[in-house]
């Protein structure tokens, strides 16, 4: 069976180039924030950072655009200091969906 010999050989892949072709890519997972803030009640724009200060996991931050508090990281222990210590009652903690 000499016919096979006529099949053209694929070019030798240049190993180094092929590796470069695959760039690492990140996918960000969606999550529903268990801690939400009533922006009408939040007084972070006046300098309040109580909820940001008391979160043991350091999950809350002040949004520079709105000057209001928000949940920046989804690692909530549903422990409640942010809600209990907020001077205006602007913070609501819900049990994370996975446990609800």
């Amino acid at each position: 069976m000499t016919g096979c010999e006529s099949v053209p050989l694929l070019p030798e892949p240049k190993k180094r180039d092929r590796e470069m072709a695959y760039q690492p890519q990140e996918i960000f997972f969606r999550s529903n924030a268990p801690v939400t803030v009533d922006e009408d009640l939040c007084i972070a724009h006046k300098g309040c950072t109580v909820c940001v200060d008391v979160c043991p996991m350091d999950l809350l931050a002040i949004n520079p655009a709105t000057q209001k508090a928000y949940m920046a990281f989804d690692e909530c222990w549903y422990c409640m200091p942010c809600e209990k210590d907020c001077p205006t009652g602007a913070v609501k903690v819900e049990i994370p969906y996975l446990l609800r």
């Binding site: 043991p56 996991m57 690692e75 909530c76 222990w77 422990c79 994370p96 996975l98 446990l99």
Partner: peptide, 13 residues
């Protein structure tokens, strides 16, 4: 057993 990383008995800190 919930599979939720921070749903621990202890404060996860």
């Amino acid at each position: 057993s919930s599979g939720y990383l921070m749903g621990t008995y202890e404060n996860p800190t």
